[in-house]
Design a binder for these strands. Structure first.
Length: 646
RNA sequence: GCCGCUGUAGCUCAGUGGUAGAGCGCGUCAUUGGUAAUGACGAGGUCGGGAGUUCAAUUCUCCCCAGCGGCACCA
């Protein structure tokens, strides 16, 4: 490249600035204006993010990233991670640095260190980070040869960094970033200087353990999590959002609302209370109706099954450590961890004709899995749960149609529960799997064709399929932003083979059916957990454990209150009566806290006119209605979505 | 399972090497009040479980269990 050649930079508005030679983003920004120079964070050169200090040597289309841009956030967070690492190295020089990326809402950095960081350390580190920001250290980018870089970090005692670089292909140029005395391997880009990060725009959040390179066979590192934002206001808003999310945590609400509990004697296995079980039953009834509508037949299979069956199905091989076993009669049994092998047993009874396919067998199957203790999480990850499970036995030709029908049903169900945003992942063959590559090719392409024709958008989730087949995962998000897989649709060519399922085809020969494993809610437990958080405990009327409370202003109305209560119950509403000698204020407050959707209040006037004054949760307004009208309205609203007329 | 933190009344939490406290809730009584807390009195705890140190352990040490935050796992 001839240095004397002109460099023409095309800005987003189409205007062109020409320079007599190489030029940096900061020069460009200051030439455009001092305001921009101050706000500039990085520059996009031909679609790639560059540091402001990096020389642009060729004609390029460019745009400057300012601190108002969304793209700046990631850079801020990445810089925050570097500043964190610098602070830690200054305070605890014997610590080795490893990696520190920006993540959703913030950043983290993993450190190798004998003694773990304490919460008090975080305060000290955070203080030092502010100092580094105040020092406004210039951040410079340098390039280094790969082997040179390995030696460089090794000389500094940074073995992890050296190992990281070793994994990079030979001959490649490595970029390093320096700020003050701190040097890190990094792709960049970074801010021009540490002072660009607002010292009141970040906060260290927590310490945690994390395996080196995400592998549980490796040693555990100390991870520090932080959050970082463009402005103090954004940071505050984020912290407030976290607080709000905590209030809708299903574990907290479950306790407050008396839905369920856990205890030591049965870790990870919920005890459902009357209130929670009412919700559960509403959901089960709903799904049962839905499944009938979509051509499923419900069955029930045993929970304790000889271990031999799990060996035959292949589950024992991969999951034996996660199965509860029982010894009896000199035999070993397992509590079923899933329903599919049992469903094949039902399929295998008698002879199935191709005319019977697709055969859709559904079960509200209670399963037990010995989940690792650290994985347990309220209702979201439990050791005993019930799935809205079903297996569709069909021919290869029927996969597409079944997938389309399933996706339609799933989206209807999610919509009825108030979930409009469902993310879908396509998980293909894992490293450890059963069956030949040929069968996997077939299963994957069949599932892909099916989901494409269903018109569902998905992201690829490589290597995450089940050991017997590829799957679609339908993911919902909890209050704290954590993702949970609920629905699933899996194409399985392997279990029918292993458990010798067959049908008689039109050609009078035996054929293997394809097995489609599918669930919509996934487990009732997890789904209810998410439902609680989604609604913050304020369930729609059809799900609410108590739909209406009837109470009087004074005890003079007690008889009338009783009559109304009886009528509500006669209409099938889940009503409660409150005859306590408390003031109306107290009772309203209490039932509102309990998140009761409707309160019917009866005073002297209402008793005389046979009306009720209705107060709905979340509203301070009251409406006095004829009793029969009030009951009718409530009844209509309390119908499950699939039972409503419109 | 791994790293760290936590475990005291039904709930939320304070506290101490000398056998425990608050608020809410609960119970009794009084109060009959028009839409988010009426008052008085009262009951309630093997301080997660086990072992050790000590004259003495809820408090200090160790082991175990469970919960929380992550990591790993998730048929």
């Amino acid at each position: 490249m001839n240095k004397s050649e002109n460099v023409a930079l095309t800005l987003p508005d189409g205007s062109i600035r020409t320079y007599p030679g190489p030029v940096t983003g900061s020069t460009l920004a200051s030439d455009i204006g001092p305001g921009l120079a101050k706000a500039a964070i990085a520059i996009v050169v031909k679609g790639e993010q560059w540091d402001l200090s990096r020389e642009i040597t060729q004609d390029s289309s460019v745009s400057i990233i300012t601190n108002r841009d969304e793209a700046a956030l990631e850079i801020f967070r990445h810089d925050a991670a570097h500043i964190l690492a610098e602070a830690v190295k200054e305070l605890y020089p014997d610590t080795q640095v490893t990696i520190g990326p920006s993540i959703e809402n913030g950043f983290y950095y993993d450190f190798a260190r004998k003694d773990p960081f304490t919460t008090e350390d975080l305060v000290v580190i955070e203080k030092r980070m502010v100092e580094i920001i105040e020092r406004d250290e210039v951040i410079t980018r340098t390039e280094m040869d790969r082997d040179e870089a390995i030696q460089f970090f090794r000389d500094m005692g940074e073995e992890y960094k050296a190992e990281l670089i070793s994994a990079i292909p030979e001959g490649q140029t490595i970029t390093l970033y320096r700020q003050g005395d701190f040097i890190d391997l990094c792709r960049g880009p970074h801010l021009p200087s540490t002072g660009k990060l607002g010292k009141d725009c970040f906060k260290l959040m927590k310490v945690a353990g994390a395996y080196w390179r995400g592998d549980s066979n490796n040693e555990m590192l100390q991870r520090i999590y932080g959050t970082a934002w463009r402005t103090k206001k954004e940071l505050k808003a984020y912290l407030t959002r976290l607080e709000e999310a905590e209030k809708r945590d299903h574990r907290k609400l479950g306790k407050e609302m008396g839905l369920f509990h856990f205890q030591e004697e049965a870790a990870g296995m919920p005890f459902w209370h009357p209130n929670g079980w009412t919700i559960y039953q509403q959901i089960e009834d709903y799904i049962r109706r839905k499944q009938k509508q979509y051509g499923y037949q419900e069955i029930k299979t045993p929970q304790v099954v000889d271990y031999k069956l799990w060996e035959k199905s292949g589950h024992a091989d991969k999951f034996h450590e996660h199965m509860y076993t029982i010894e009896a009669d000199n035999r070993t049994f397992a509590l079923k961890p899933m329903n599919c092998p049992c469903h094949v047993q039902v399929f295998n009874q008698g002879i199935v004709s191709y005319r019977d396919l697709p055969l859709r067998l559904a079960e509200f199957g209670s399963c037990h899995r010995y989940e690792p203790s650290g994985a347990l999480h309220g209702l979201m990850r439990v050791r005993s749960f019930t799935q809205d499970d079903a297996h569709i036995f069909c021919t290869e030709d029927q996969i597409t149609e079944e997938c389309i029908s399933f996706c339609k049903m799933l989206l209807e169900v999610y919509k009825d529960f108030g979930f409009d945003n469902v993310r879908v992942k396509f998980s293909d063959r894992p490293d450890v799997r059963a069956g030949s590559d040929e069968i996997w090719d077939k299963a994957e392409s069949a599932l892909k064709a099916a989901v494409d024709s269903a018109g569902i958008e998905y992201t690829l989730n490589p290597g995450e399929g089940a050991f017997y087949g590829p799957k679609l995962e339908f993911v919902l998000t909890d209050a704290i932003g954590r993702d949970w897989q609920c629905g699933t649709f899996q194409a399985d060519f392997i279990l029918p083979e292993r458990l010798d399922a067959h049908y008689i085809g039109a050609d009078n020969d035996k054929h293997r059916p394809v097995m489609l494993h599918r669930a919509i809610l996934g487990s009732f437990e997890r789904f209810i957990g998410i439902l609680i958080e989604e609604h913050a405990g304020r369930f729609p009327l059809w799900l609410a454990p108590t739909q209406v409370v009837v109470t009087g202003i004074t005890s003079d109305q007690d008889d009338h209150v009783r009559t109304v209560y009886e009528q509500l119950k006669a209409h099938g509403l889940r009503a409660q009566i409150d005859l306590r000698s408390e003031k109306i204020n107290y009772k309203i407050r209490e039932h509102s806290h309990a998140k009761t959707p409707a309160i019917f209040v009866i005073g002297g006037r209402e008793a005389e006119e046979n009306t009720v004054t209705v107060r709905r949760l979340g509203s301070k307004q009251q409406k006095t209605l004829d009793l029969s009208a009030a009951i009718e309205a409530l009844k209509e609203e309390s119908l499950a979505p699939d039972l409503r007329k419109n």
